[in-house]
Design a protein around this nucleic acid. Structure first.
Lengths: 168, 168
DNA sequence: ACGTTAGATTACCGGAAGATCATCATTGAT
DNA sequence: ATCAATGATGATCTTCCGGTAATCTAACGT
């Protein structure tokens, strides 16, 4: 019922494993193994995110996936939109038929406000914030893949040596 | 994603058609016809609500369904609990695995607070409030079935002549 | 008793989300 | 050119929710 879709959660977990734009691509396979997300399912998910311009995926030798934007510029709302779309924001809490502009239900206004609060939060939380949140084990994974420890309290800056480098 | 289940909405619509405890039973058939809820599906729904002690259903001649408690004492939370259960309240917004007491995610606290607000609302809104809200057409239906116009601003009192009368 | 009028119950259909498997298609290395 | 690495894709499966249809069964009037 209430929470975001499970797949949006997958997206969060998966993107935490990726490098900033210009960094080294990480294999879908590795991300799948680490996160526990089924490989093939993850592949489709990544593809969806790629179409939305959130990540860049390359096939073949030395392929893999990299963030398309700095993690500080990817919000939870971006992920939710990309995966679950936006339709759910318009539905009445109780799914009442007539509920709308003309005849709002008792909870219409309350629900609109609540939704707005939630969306504001989704908008304000970035992938960088989530990485910083120490999803247990992500640190280890990131270390193994040459990713910086998130600097506490600071936006997780990407090493400048990687920023401008092409994806290879 | 976010809203309550469609079936909970059904329950709201359906119970708006019923009489206060002691009143005349209304047929599932009639409720189905009026609300547009499929008869057989509604039957199951009503049965579920009956098992939870929210309505009383009787079979056979002059059977039908009546509220088991005054509409002022049936909250949206009661309906939501009866139909969707309570498990969803415990899930992490993003479905993150480790999110819990030890390692809450960035949105854990926010989400807990938001949920609490929502539940407080569900708890404070009663069936009587919803009836008063003039779901368009419910008035007509209720009139046809001898139900009082909800007295604006007052708890919808049930005629004392019906209060103590047995269900027949 | 019996038959009619209800609700209850059982079995099944259909779509969406999540998941799996096998296979295809692209890319870089040689 | 060829091959191996790697993401993309299509078919299929499962589960859950919503919905349908047929049938069973309790309650009352006669």
């Amino acid at each position: 019922m209430l929470p975001l879709s499970q797949t949006t959660g997958y997206a969060v977990r998966a993107l935490q494993c990726l490098q900033e734009p210009g960094g080294h691509p990480v294999l879908v396979e590795e991300v799948a193994e680490y996160t526990g997300i089924p490989r093939s399912y993850l592949s489709k998910l990544i593809h969806k995110l790629a179409k939305k311009g959130l990540v860049v995926a390359r096939r073949g030798h030395h392929g893999g996936v990299v963030l398309a934007r700095p993690s500080t510029e990817i919000t939870l709302e971006d992920l939710s939109d990309a995966i679950d779309g936006v339709a759910w924001r318009k539905r009445c809490l109780m799914g009442l038929l007539g509920c709308g502009g003309a005849a709002p239900c008792v909870l219409h206004e309350f629900w609109q406000e609540t939704l707005e609060q939630i969306l504001a939060r989704l908008r304000s939380v970035t992938l960088a914030d989530l990485v910083e949140n120490h999803d247990p084990g992500v640190d280890r994974f990131r270390a193994n893949h040459g990713l910086a420890e998130p600097a506490s309290g600071l936006p997780s800056a990407h090493p400048s040596s990687l920023v401008e480098a092409s994806i290879h």
